[in-house]
Design a protein around this nucleic acid. Structure first.
Lengths: 191, 191
DNA sequence: TTGATTATTGACCGATCGGTTCCTAATCTA
DNA sequence: TAGATTAGGAACCGATCGGTCAATAATCAA
């Protein structure tokens, strides 16, 4: 019986992701969002209820995308897969020109201010580290990777390097440097 | 001929650092600062002129403290020194309970919004990475560290891990995990 | 002690913040 | 086509934002 929504929700969420990624949650005003999504205030509040709920929806979408992307990359052979993860991370740093990663940015900005975001962020990290750990375990079974350290610890360490890259990616660093860092991180798994 | 300032500037700046570290620049209101510094609005604006200038002053102070702390730690033998840097980083993560690092937090929050902060932040990173590189070079000369990769690249990689730890430290991670990550990072220099 | 100078205080400023409300427009069912 | 329902648009809301200012208090030199 209703009137249809005139804007595309997925498209709007992508715009919201980019905006929040750029300016942060607190740095993004509702009016910024209206410009970015190309809609009016009433529509935004009809659709999501508040700036915070829109953010949470966008963040959840981003988490899912990241998790899906990681798992896709990890379907290859472990070593190649992990190299690809870093290359992808670096290319995001460079291509997105300082936009960084919404997950990392949000965790740094908001984990201490918003318990729910901290919880969601922790969950996301668990999934990401878990997926990396599985790949490393495969690499360990294949004899490609060292076995003197548990896969979970290696995965945690690798993920920390990725977070470091993405955080440092907020100011622009030459691509070669970033790639060298990624290469070293994966190398440190070998033996 | 003048009336004296009633509050201690150094003490006030320390309070400002903690507040900005906790809540971020945008998340800290002037009224938050007044509470934290225990002064009135007029005094704040007399002393620093604006919230932004107070922030820049606090950030500069923090940078100097970090740089001095790092250089002090690096006066030991290279390997022990770098281990100590990580232990110090981890203990900060744990002791400060999610406060993280003002340098990292500010870079992630503001590098894309404020060119001057990006510039200052980049300078700080250069100093930090440079100091680590010098220590690694010493370790390389002593035969403690691998020489197949330039010290600057190793230092960059190590610093990225530190940044990753500090960023992840915004949500609380068990100390043991953090320590394991730090140990692995320094180990990867050896050979 | 007086006068010049600076710090502190608290009221005040316009602008913007996130959010609400109400009216109209569009779309479906019956 | 009538009526129910939802979306879009714009004016409007109180609260808070960062920042200013005039009056008062304190301190020094002369």
């Amino acid at each position: 019986m209703p009137r249809h929504r005139e804007f595309d929700t997925d498209q709007a969420l992508e715009a919201a992701i980019r905006t929040f990624q750029d300016k942060g949650y607190q740095g993004t005003s509702v009016s910024d969002l209206l410009d970015a999504l190309g809609i009016q205030k009433g529509s935004l509040y009809k659709a999501w209820g508040s700036k915070r709920k829109l953010f949470l929806t966008a963040l959840d979408r981003y988490f899912r995308q990241q998790q899906a992307g990681l798992k896709a990359a990890l379907s290859e052979s472990p070593k190649a897969a992990l190299h690809q993860v870093f290359e992808y991370t670096v290319s995001r740093c460079v291509l997105d020109e300082g936009r960084g990663c919404l997950a990392v940015n949000s965790c740094v900005e908001l984990a201490q201010l918003d318990e729910e975001i901290q919880r969601l962020s922790d969950e996301h990290v668990s999934v990401m580290v878990g997926a990396i750990a599985v790949a490393i375990q495969r690499g360990q079974r294949d004899g490609e990777f060292r076995t003197d350290v548990p896969a979970e610890v290696l995965a945690d360490s690798l993920y920390t390097s990725i977070v470091g890259l993405l955080a440092r990616g907020r100011s622009l660093i030459p691509q070669e440097r970033l790639l060298a860092i990624g290469r070293l991180a994966v190398e440190s798994l070998e033996r």
